[in-house]
Amino acid sequence: MDKRLPGLEEAVSGIKDGATVMIGGFGGSGNPIELIHALIDAGPKDLTVINNNAGNGKIGIAAMIDAGMVKKMICSFPKSSDPRAFTDRYMAGEIELELVPQGTLAERIRAGGTGIPAFYTPASYGTELAEGKPTAEFDGKHYVQERWLKADFALIKAELADHFGNLTYRMAARNFSPLMAAAATTTIVQATKVVEPGGIDPEQVHTPGIFVDHVVEVADPQQEEALIRAGVEYERA
């Protein structure tokens, strides 16, 4: 078994018009921008994108939105230090938004990856984000029913990967990625370093390779937040 692919172009070539794509990351931390920009080059349209945010500046998801590839965002916080890309399209009615409380978003993705079609959470009960959703009372408290979230593809940034797709993440760049890797039909990973099987201590694996389909090495990846703060745009290697 060897899940390695030679390059980013091959990695994203299966993502076609109308696909649902989960993208790991919280702000710039864990955002797989090399994979995202390879997808922009491939150019599929009418995508539904699931991420905590909705892009910043002109990089990553914001660049996807600017390229007119995104039909719908499912996220908790479509704001950033420079939210122009999403805001302009949203105010013009050119992009749909499904706003989900952050913990509910994480749990819906976990449910999608673990075969749980629905669950109950106290979050959003009695608020406008619960309108139209079933509710129930358990032990005297009120809860909102939420459905699982799945995707056709997940784009993930890892620190280490082995040939079997076992992954580790760097610091708080982990965030949604382990959940998304499990919830997507096809999970595509860019890793800073790819090692032989056995090159990651089994006790240190964060995402087991069963959740991963393809691995591409992107040594020295760029970091969205660092680029934005430096006032520079993404440059293809």
Binding site: F77, L97, V100, P101, Q102, G103, T121, P122, T127, L129
Partner: peptide, 15 residues
């Protein structure tokens, strides 16, 4: 009005 953004606010108030 504007773009709604909830983040973790609705989760943090429970529990």
């Amino acid at each position: 009005k504007g773009v709604p953004a909830v983040g973790g606010a609705m989760d943090l108030v429970h529990g």
